[in-house]
Design a binder for these strands. Structure first.
Length: 277
DNA sequence: AAGGTAACCTGACTGC
DNA sequence: TGCAGTCAGGTTACCT
């Protein structure tokens, strides 16, 4: 599930339970993720305190005094928290890591194993210089992100606007669902060359991106209570999509059937009437 | 430098 | 039921 909103919802759910809390121990049950979970990770964080839980794009950054634990949820990853450690269920086959705090247990599950859990030592400098983070674009809620930013950073791009949004080197956090949704709200055709879009339409797109992400965070946030609990509810609540996964269904604005096309091996959904250009 | 493609995985669903 | 095929919210590595 994880695009920026899901990661942010996760961050907000976890933060009250882990920030300023000391790690008692960590258990790596299955280190096979996109890259192996470092063998020394439990040793590195045991007895240390999480100073802050931050998000950068779709990455969660767990700041310690001596370094940062970097986590990415890939396609199927999720962190769950159990406020009471005694209520934690036995681990399932895709539960890779448990981190035990004094009163709380957090667990990383990831069936497809596209996620990552890595360590960046403070001696290596700012975590922002880590190879996975260094090339990331601006945060969509950063004041610098606006139509002018999109316009300036697409002058030398030959690809489609949909693929530029997904690439993450201009703006971060927009995944496959919210790329389609943002373009629909801005009334821009996903196949349109990024280079050919003018400032005015980019202004609409920047606004649409922020709106879509804000709404998605809001509906996800409304289910935080379930998310935190141990009752098995998955906690994420999908934004009511206007186009995503609605191929053949009528556009909510003009009733034209929504079409599905493939761009860069990913599905794109849009309305041929509302998103003519 | 930017773009296209394959690759990494498991699980859910569809159709025969 | 069973089995094959398709698809899925992400990203990197590698090649032009």
């Amino acid at each position: 599930m994880p695009e920026l909103p899901e990661v942010e919802v996760t961050r907000r759910a976890l933060a009250p339970y882990v920030e300023h809390q000391k790690v008692e121990s960590a258990i790596v049950r299955d280190s096979r993720l996109r890259w192996p979970v470092p063998k020394q990770l439990p040793k590195l964080i045991a007895g240390e305190t999480v100073e802050r839980l931050r998000r950068r794009g779709k990455y969660l950054l767990w700041d310690f005094a001596h370094g940062t634990m970097i986590s990415h949820l890939g396609m199927s990853g999720a962190w769950r928290v159990w406020p009471l450690r005694r209520a934690v269920p036995p681990p399932g086959p895709h539960d890779h890591v448990d981190i035990l705090f004094v009163a709380t247990n957090v667990r990383l599950t990831d069936p497809r194993r596209f996620g990552a859990l890595l360590w960046h030592d403070a001696t290596a400098g700012d975590v922002a210089t880590h190879p996975l983070l260094a090339g990331l674009g601006v945060e969509p809620f950063d004041a610098r992100f606006d139509g002018e930013w999109l316009y300036r950073h697409t002058r030398s791009r030959t690809g489609s606007i949909k693929q530029v949004l997904l690439a993450g080197d201009v703006v971060v956090g927009v995944g496959n669902i919210y790329a389609s949704e943002s373009l629909f709200r801005a009334r821009i055709n996903p196949k349109r060359s990024a280079r050919g879009i003018g400032r005015l339409r980019y202004e609409a797109l920047a606004t649409a991106v922020r709106e879509v992400l804000t709404e998605a965070i809001a509906v996800g946030g409304s289910t935080l209570r379930d998310f935190v609990g141990a009752d098995g509810a998955d906690g994420y609540f999908m934004l009511d999509a206007r186009v995503y996964d609605r191929a053949g269904e009528p556009c909510r604005v003009c009733a034209t059937p929504i079409v599905r096309v493939v761009q860069g091996q990913r599905a794109t959904y849009y309305c041929r009437t509302c998103q003519r250009r």
